[in-house]
Nucleic acid binder design. Structure first.
Lengths: 167, 167
DNA sequence: TTCGATACTCACGGATTTCGTAGGTGGCCC
DNA sequence: GGGCCACCTACGAAATCCGTGAGTATCGAA
């Protein structure tokens, strides 16, 4: 169960940390699915040099391990969420605790701990200005440990890709 | 062929701007695919109250229109990109021109125009520190119109979802 | 009101894909 | 060597995909 990071064909790169590493073949599979999440296993197999079943098993494992997920993504504006913002947050005390609290909020779509003049950056997706105001002022600022926040309201989303590796 | 944003069952919301609007059914379809991008059309149809063929046609249209894409997403750290950063940028002159230039850079995964103390925010995905440094100092700062930048290096990604609507 | 366009349902059949499973192979450790 | 484990290939059955055509309902414009 411990996911020992096997090394099938010898053609993989060394793995440092605790996260399960990926060999070149899995990378290639992910690339294929980044282009089209519904691409058939057989087509992927042809592209990466594996049988259909092998691809299927690898994909299943990647999904199970949480390394990858196959999902629909949209521009939130198109889907009726008219206000988005990035919020920079400064924390006193336990940053991770604040991050966990933010993670539990459904409006927070993206939570990351950073180095720099903010401790946390959070992307907020809201339906309108009232909603956004409430989330930032009532909920985020109310969290214990939050010292200050700074908001960057989105005017226009110019780019949004998921194509790492395809370059 | 012109795809005029029809209004099938009368149960849709009005559409203001240029972007094609989405009725409740398409929203529901997107939700299904946000949970599992490979869910079969028949299963989606059962969930949203449409036939398999209708779902198929809607999904195809949503993809063609660019409203939605079905892709694999990963935590970049797992895939070998060890340094990520959010970069806030101040611009003098044409903000959109700078944004377009950033959009063309493969390391910029996310580009958004904002209101607040930054004009642009950009998410950068790099392989290591050298790469990150080069992108920020050599390439971004070199763009005409870029007045200043501020970087927030990612320490830990806590949350990353694509579940708008599923709430 | 009538016409035209759009979108849906239902149906069908062939091609393709998915899925479970059985069997083979190579590396690794005792 | 022998056992073990992870990974692969192979194959058949079941399910899904996909193009297609006919008939119906709704809406907006002439």
């Amino acid at each position: 169960m411990a996911s020992r990071s096997a090394d099938p064909k010898g053609s993989s790169q060394r793995n440092g940390g605790g996260t399960p590493s990926l060999d070149a073949v899995s990378l290639a599979i992910i690339e294929q699915l980044q282009e089209d999440g519904r691409r058939p296993y057989a087509a992927i197999g042809k592209a990466v040099g594996l049988s259909e079943a092998a691809v299927r098993q690898r994909v299943q494992k990647l999904l199970d391990q949480g390394v990858m997920q196959i999902v629909a993504v949209t521009d939130p504006l198109t889907v009726g969420f008219r206000r988005q913002a990035m919020v920079g947050i400064n924390v006193e005390g336990d940053v991770e605790a604040v991050a966990d609290a933010l993670t539990d909020m459904s409006e927070c779509e993206y939570v990351v701990m950073t180095a720099g003049s903010f401790d946390l950056m959070v992307e907020i997706v809201c339906e309108d200005d009232d909603h956004l105001l409430e989330v930032i002022n009532q909920r985020i600022r109310a969290l214990p440990g939050v010292r200050s926040t700074e908001s960057f309201v989105y005017l226009k989303l110019k780019k949004q890709t998921y194509m790492w590796g395809t370059r």
